[in-house]
């Protein structure tokens, strides 16, 4: 590492107790923040006070892109972050491919299999940039909100403009559905939805609720067209400066915490959905046949992304995705 945390003595290379920064982008009232504070509470207990965390919530140390750079350089020692949005490597967007799995059971099979292609891919790619991924947790399925009409079929999307993340797989996806994907910078999205600059957006229930889009959006369709997975990572130099005992103890805590976080996010989805309905949103919950109509473009989009992720990885993901779909439909 050209600039490692050690060069300016963040403390990680000494034998005394270390205090590591632990950052994330979510507000206080979020499952991830609960996870971060839990880790900060339990870390000194399981390491006899040798490892401590200071939690920095709400993008205080930057968004996912800046956290990625900070983790790689060691300026941010540890973080809960979405590697997909870090810009560190295009291959990190693998887990964003549409319709990898659309049920919690399916997700558990594909995304939370430690030896599965998704986690392996993310761990390996992050390792190349000097980041050690220690655990994975859920960030909610994506959905569609808009202000024009309830969307039951892809045909209902024709002519509507949606703000989507500016990744080719997303613009391809929405164009395949006949919608008009447009770019709106995230800080202006609320006002843009309010004024009708754009008809809709495609974040999930939790982020829609956190960003208060229910105040300016009428319809929500639970397409589950993609799944959000986050990870907790540390700078590799910092992590390896800890003793093996401490690493093991922390890994154990992190396993607990990430499992809890995933469960909490799933639990909170029901509450958030109820609150979205209460604030006047009309929710379309798709049945399997309806969802299949949306998923019809899956092969087309996946094929177009083969050059990014490589044929082997895509083939493995196809197998895992299909196996999970079969196993969970029985």
């Amino acid at each position: 590492a050209l600039v490692s945390a050690c060069s300016f003595g963040s403390g990680a290379d000494s034998d005394g107790p270390v205090t590591l920064k632990l950052a994330h982008v979510f507000p206080e009232a979020s499952a991830v923040h609960t996870a971060a504070t839990t880790l900060a509470e339990r870390a000194p207990d399981v390491t006899d006070g040798r490892v401590n965390f200071d939690v920095y919530p709400g993008s205080q140390l930057g968004g996912d892109e800046e956290l990625g750079a900070g983790l790689a350089s060691g300026d941010v020692e540890c973080a809960f972050f979405a590697a997909t949005a870090s810009g560190l490597d295009d291959r990190l967007q693998l887990s964003l491919l549409p319709f990898i799995a659309t049920t919690y059971d399916g997700v558990d099979e594909v995304f939370f299999d430690e030896d599965g292609v998704i986690q392996t891919n993310e761990r390996d790619v992050l390792a190349e940039t000097g980041i050690t991924a220690l655990g994975f947790y859920e960030n909610d399925f994506r959905g569609l909100t808009n202000n024009v009409r309830p969307i039951q079929t892809p045909e209902d999307m024709a002519g509507l403009s949606f703000r989507v993340p500016g990744l080719s797989m997303y613009t391809d996806l929405f164009e395949a559905w006949g919608a008009n994907p447009v770019a709106i910078p995230f800080p202006e999205l609320y006002t843009a939805l309010q004024q009708g600059t754009v008809d809709g957006q495609d974040n999930g229930i939790v982020l829609t609720y956190n960003s208060r889009y229910q105040e300016v959006q009428k319809h929500l369709t639970l397409t589950r067209h993609a799944y959000g997975m986050g990870n907790i990572s540390c700078n590799t130099d910092v992590w390896e400066s800890l003793s093996e005992d401490d690493q093991d103890a922390l890994r154990e805590v992190i396993d607990d915490i990430t499992a809890d976080t995933t469960q909490q996010v799933r639990d909170s989805v029901a509450d958030r959905l109820a609150e979205l309905k209460e604030s006047g949103m009309e929710v379309v919950e798709l049945d399997d046949a309806q969802r299949a109509a949306f998923a019809g473009i899956k092969d087309e989009v996946w094929t177009s992304q083969e050059s990014v992720f490589g044929a082997d990885v895509m083939e493995q993901l196809r197998e895992e995705s299909e196996a999970a779909a079969e196993a969970t439909s029985e």
């Binding site: 945390a5 300016f8 750079a69």
Partner: peptide
């Protein structure tokens, strides 16, 4: 005791 080398990157972000 932090890294002053992050001043340019934070200024940029």
């Amino acid at each position: 005791g932090g890294n002053p080398g992050q001043v340019p990157s934070v200024a940029f972000r």
